[in-house]
Amino acid sequence: MSTSYVVRFVLIMTTLVAVLLTVLFLGLKDQSAVNEAIFNKRAILASVKDHLPEGMVHEDLTDDQVQEIFSSRVEQVALNMSGQSLESADIVASGYKGGKAENIDMAKEKKKEEAERILPLYVYNADGGKFYIMSVRGNGLWDEIWGNIALQDDLNTVAGAAFDHRGETPGLGAEIKDNPGFAAQFKGKKIYDAKGQFTSIDVVKGGADKGAIHAVDGISGATVTADGVDEMLRRGISYYEPYFNQIKSSNPGLSN
């Protein structure tokens, strides 16, 4: 077959395929975006799954219920690294058209210089009080890991945590998500010691001491992932410290 036939064939084929895939992509884009937003909101609510409105169970939440809880009970705050809360216009200026904290893409933020990052903070108003939900992101063994950690309104005690990952080994590193026992350990742990020093929560290889309030058990066979969670928490939570300090200084009762 002649060269010109080959060139024509390839050109026509490529154009056809490109048009087909573009049409499909554009047609499904909105649906995918809605799915993604709900998926993320569900993950955020997983960190306060013990404090959901009466009669709701996290695993059984419908998409509408997730949206409903978010619009009626969650205040979204976006912060810069020095703890100032950002206006909607600032969020848009950082590249997120929606202009809300929920639009912030943690994966994109992780690639920025540390000082230029912006952070979402979700203040969840439960029947029993306020919860502050932080988003953190770090590296596991194979790929990124991330999570949401909820603090009680003393800004010290963890009310719950939920983790996810992109490519950790199922049964080993993936247990940070798959095993409800791992995230459940964080409940009741504290991120500040008695002197008010930030301690984070250590993920300890071989098991934390009984009764430790700043540590949880690691996962045997998944040391690198567990170390990743440890590092992610220490760094990720510390980003929120400036803002927490501001709240504390305006509410002297909170400082501990």
């Binding site: 077959m1 036939y5 080959v6 064939f9 390839v10 084929m13 490529t14 395929v17 087909l20 895939l21 499909l24 992509f25 499904l28 649906q31 995918s32 799915n35 993604e36 709900i38 998926f39």
Partner: peptide, 30 residues
């Protein structure tokens, strides 16, 4: 299909179908 580029043509067909699967899954079972 010109025999000189048949492997590439096959690959394009496969890749397109896989992309269709991926986009559909993303829209309907996230």
């Amino acid at each position: 299909i010109p025999s000189q580029v048949r492997m590439i043509v096959q690959l394009v067909i496969i890749a397109s179908l896989v992309t269709i699967v991926e986009l559909t899954l993303k829209a309907f079972n996230y």
